[in-house]
Amino acid sequence: MRKSLMRITLRQLQVFRSVCQQRSYSRAAEDMALTQPAVSLQIRQLEELLGQPLFDYVGKKLYLTDAAEALQRASADIFGRLESLDMQLGDLQGSLQGQLSLAVESSAKYFTPHLFAAFRRHYPEVSLQLVVTNHTQALKRLSANRDDLLIMSQVPTDLNLEFLPFLNNPIVAVAPATHPLCSQGLLCLQDLTAWPLLVRERGSGSRQAGEEYCHQKRAHFAQTLELGSTESQLEGVLAGLGLALLPRHAVRRELACGALRELPVAELPLLRSWCLVHPRGKYLSPVAQAFFAFVRDQRSQINALAESFAEPAPERRPGS
């Protein structure tokens, strides 16, 4: 090993990780409660120890060099090991301690806090860092190894991933309570295409699932309106802009109070599974191992917890 690498300090790595995350020396300085010259000095010293530059500026944007990419992976492993050591020391004292770093696709964000609360009843000293993202961003986080675990649907088969399906994610068609379709009987997906469909941004897993399913069923919507979040879709439906295909968990309150109606479509709900995912061979911290084991072993408890999020719409007969 190069002797110079032994002189790298944890503080330098902390500053480096902040610059990587913020993509800015000034924002990293603010994040670390340092001055910008102090951040520049730490990075310059790191570059001298490595013998290679860490960042390039193109225009006004900061980009990581190959050396920075390698150092980022190494620093993630170093701090992960230190976090694991802290958890193991806590375990030796008789309690599991530490932080679970969890990323979830946006359709899972409604249920995940309830899932973590159930887990935390067993391990009250575990904290949570939760990041909500879309499907495309989730895949980038996986490749960068930024989280302990990820909750997503539609797990890619071409990546070397370990995944555990644990809960259905039913996608349903919703409309305002006053919509003409609400007074009709059992519908088919084609019946919905006369109205605009509100969709998420490109890169969303729920949008991809909905588009693929509609294409498979030959239900082609002449007009779609793109909104940037599930909440925007929900508000758009309430405002009368159109219909939407949404996770039932995301609209449970609006369905319960009658503001929205789940349309009785014969081809729906579209069922996808939420999966707990991590790269195959990834070292899992004791907290991540405990959470994975909890999700694997407590299926009945999780399903019971999810029932309040997934009450099916009553089936309507034609002419009823």
Rank of each mutant, 00 (worst) to 15 (best):
C214P: 01
S300R: 09
V58K: 09
L100W: 01
V174W: 04
V295G: 01
A290W: 03
F221V: 13
Y123G: 00
G94D: 06
I43V: 15
P318N: 13
F291T: 00
R11H: 06
S106L: 10
A76V: 04
L260C: 12
M1D: 07
Q72H: 06
E235K: 13
P165N: 02
Q301N: 02
K140D: 15
R121C: 03
E226F: 09
E267F: 07
N303Q: 14
L246E: 07
L50R: 04
I8Q: 03
V277P: 04
D148C: 12
L197N: 04
R207D: 11
S153K: 04
V237E: 03
E48N: 12
V15W: 00
R253S: 10
G319W: 08
L189T: 12
G210R: 07
F221N: 02
P113V: 05
R81C: 01
C188K: 03
N134A: 08
I78G: 05
A244L: 10
R317A: 12
L102P: 09
Q36E: 13
R2C: 01
D147R: 12
P113F: 04
A306R: 07
Q233M: 15
P156F: 15
E211Y: 01
A117T: 02
D191I: 10
S285F: 06
P37F: 09
F163V: 03
R252W: 01
Q42T: 01
N169T: 05
G281L: 10
V131S: 09
S273N: 05
S18D: 06
I171T: 08
G185F: 04
L62P: 03
G228D: 08
H122W: 07
S75K: 10
Q137L: 11
I171W: 01
S18I: 06
A310W: 03
T35S: 13
